[in-house]
Structures are given as C-alpha cells and as structure tokens.
C-alpha cells in the first residue's frame, strides 16, 4: 500500500499496527507462561506470574485504544484505513479477553492444583494440550492478520476454531472426560471452569479471524443471519 500524503498519518497507523502485534505476542507468551506453570505442577509460582502479567496486557489495551481514538478524531479515516482501525480496536479487545481467561485458568489451578489428562478412545486431551494448540492457533491467527492472509483466516475459522472445529471437539471431550472420571465435586468444577475458559479463548481467536476478513474484504462476517436493512 502506498503511503499517505500526510506522513504523520502513516506513522500513527504503523504505531497502532505495532501495538496490536506487540500485544498479540504478549498474550501468546502469557498463555505459554501458563502452560509452563502446568508443567511445573505441583509448584505454583508461575501462576502468580501469569496473574500479575495480565496487568501489562490491560495496559497495552488502554494504550492501543488511545491510538484508535486519536486516529478517529484527528484523521477521520475512511476506506481501508478505517477498517484497519476498527479491526485493530476489535482485535485488541479479543486479546484482552484471552488474557482474562488465561488468568481464570491460572486461578483455578492455583487453588486446586489439579491437572489430570483425559484419555478417551486412545486420544489424550488436557488443559495443557488444549492450551498448547490454543497458542498455536492464536499465533496463526495473528500471522494471518499481519499478512492480510484472508484464506488462512477463513480456513482457521472453518476447520479449527468454529464450534464444529477440532479445538472445540477436544474441549468437549475434556468436559465429557471430567464428568466421567473425576470424583470430587470441587475437582470436577475446577476442571470444568478450565475447559470453559479454553472454549472462550477459542471463540476470541475465531473472532480475530473474522476481524481479519473484515479488514481485508470489508465484509462483516460475524452474524451472517442478520440481514442488512440499513437505509440512508
């Protein structure tokens, strides 16, 4: 894309792009830290670190939101610039929420110290395995966003992060396993909370893919059932 006649506009847009990417990397690291915490169990020092590092993520959201506001107010963006700013603003919100879910998982693990993988029909799923594939999916979604790669975004939405997708199936299997295998209510509850948060993380990754498609194609794919009846 060629540059704006007004150079400062380009700088501000580049800054927003960097802020989103940096925040994305940070959230992926945050998830990685949680994974490390699970591997280190029964020690729980990592979980405190995870809970604390959420503050950094929130701070990043605030900064990116400021850049968004400033761009909207001062440049009155249109076209792809406008879509880029709107998409960035939405992605930042998704990332912040992923951060929150990671904290929820860290909290439950800190309290219960439970982490039992479930094996069903030869396939083993666990909070750790879902988290590992979640990190992978998030990184791919962010890469697609970075590269304007609408095909990857679509493919991910369809195959992995949709409700029928691989990730969701694994999360369902985990919940099913919990129901059958865990004895104490407390244990089941904690495991169910984790599975639920893992699903929410998946939803947010799904949304990031939608925002990518909106950015590139200008099409809002979030709720295909809603008809556009806007009249000017």
């Amino acid at each position: 894309m060629s540059s704006h006649t007004l150079k400062r506009y380009d700088k501000e847009l580049d800054k927003l792009k960097e802020q989103v990417e940096h925040m994305g990397e940070h959230v992926a690291l945050h998830m990685g830290m949680l994974l490390k915490g699970i591997e280190d169990l029964p020690g729980d020092s990592k979980f405190d670190e995870v809970i604390e590092s959420d503050i950094t993520i929130n701070g990043m959201e605030v900064k990116a939101s400021k850049t968004v506001l400033k761009l909207l107010a001062r440049q009155q963006p249109v076209g792809r610039d406008l879509r880029m700013i709107i998409a960035s603003s939405r992605v930042v919100t998704e990332l912040e929420r992923i951060g929150d879910e990671v904290v929820t998982i860290a909290r439950t693990l800190k309290e219960s110290h439970q982490h039992s993988p479930c094996t069903d029909g030869g396939v083993t799923v666990s909070t750790a395995s879902l988290l590992a594939s979640g990190i992978n999916l998030l990184e791919r979604a962010l890469l697609a966003l970075h590269n304007d790669d609408v095909e990857t975004a679509r493919d991910m939405m369809n195959r992995h992060v949709a409700h029928e997708g691989t990730y969701y199936q694994d999360a369902d299997q985990l919940i099913e396993c919990i129901k059958q295998n865990h004895e104490s209510i407390e244990e089941s509850f904690s495991a169910a909370l984790q599975a639920n948060s893992l699903k929410r993380i998946c939803d947010h990754i799904h949304n990031i893919c939608e925002h990518t498609i909106f950015l590139i194609e200008g099409e809002d794919v979030r709720h295909p059932e809603i008809q556009d009846e806007d009249e000017d």
Binding site: S2, S3, T5, D232
Partner: peptide, 21 residues
C-alpha cells in the same frame, strides 16, 4: 452508495484518493 465508497471502495484510485494517498 456513499457508505460503501467510504468504507470499502472498489477501485484503487478511489481508495487512494479518499484515504489521502
């Protein structure tokens, strides 16, 4: 439609002009 032209123009020349490029 104006909202289409200003959010998602089809032609590159339009895009470049409205976005200040």
């Amino acid at each position: 439609q104006t909202d289409k032209v200003f959010t998602n123009p089809e032609h590159k020349l339009t895009e470049d002009y409205i976005t200040g490029r």
